[in-house]
Amino acid sequence: MRHWRTGLFMAAPVLLGFIFLVLYPVVSVIRDSFTSYNPLSGEAAFIGVDNYTRLIQDETALEVAKNTLIFAAILVPVNMALALFLAVLLNLHFKGRTTFRAIFFSPVIVSTVAWTIVWKYILQDDGPLNYFIGLSGLEGNNWLRENPWPMISVVMVQVFKNLGMNMIFFLAALQGVPEEMYESSEIDGANRWQQFKKITLPFISPTILLVAILTIAGAFQVFAQVLLLTGGGPGLSTTVLSYYIFVNAFQIFDLGYASALAVCLFIFVMGLTIAQWQIRTRWVFREV
């Protein structure tokens, strides 16, 4: 009995934090999704499932969902492939590798807003990127205004922002692969690619799963980059779900509908994470 009390006491800070900072907001959003809550006037009326019915018929929401999937479909493989590639490179023994690790990790500690504003300056039509492209005799693009470049720009700004974090995860995993595995495979005549495919990848597969879950969940929550780089434009071409939720909540002041969208996003991301977890047994070599 005493152990039970002590345990509860020790867990209380986290438990209270979870109740008030996670559970309460989630329950509030679910409740608000059944209302016509206007945050400006404070007026709210229960309207049943009207917001969800509207969501199904909302052509804009469909386009936004498509944009979100495109964003995630580009971001996740590019981010993971680059992070793994860098981790493999920086796992080799060469002079200055610690400096390179620090350079690639540094965007992670920079504020997202500052990072995005700097990129907005670099990517504008008369900005430094087009200037340097111009020096080589080529013509640059209006990266933030002419399709398909705005979406690609937003993805790349996000990729470089978080690349370092995934790289560190992979690096830690790579350093955990037993050296003797490579030595014995070498005796067996395995080449570098075979070693990577048959030893490295299976050994780091739990980390690949972790990074995949985090990156996919992050991809569906991207917001600041869209707000600051393109404002969702041109047209709706870079409007993703989290930004659309913000627009409905704080620009159109339809918090009820925004809540319904947020609930759908929540269910989708959770479903995706559960699915990834369920299928892990098919491709994850071992669980740590």
């Binding site: 969702g232 041109p234 159109i252």
Partner: peptide, 17 residues
């Protein structure tokens, strides 16, 4: 205005090319 402002802006974006 709030319910139409952004729709007008995003649609008019089609003009700026």
């Amino acid at each position: 205005l709030s319910s139409i402002e952004l729709t007008v802006k995003s649609t008019l974006d089609g003009l700026w090319k």
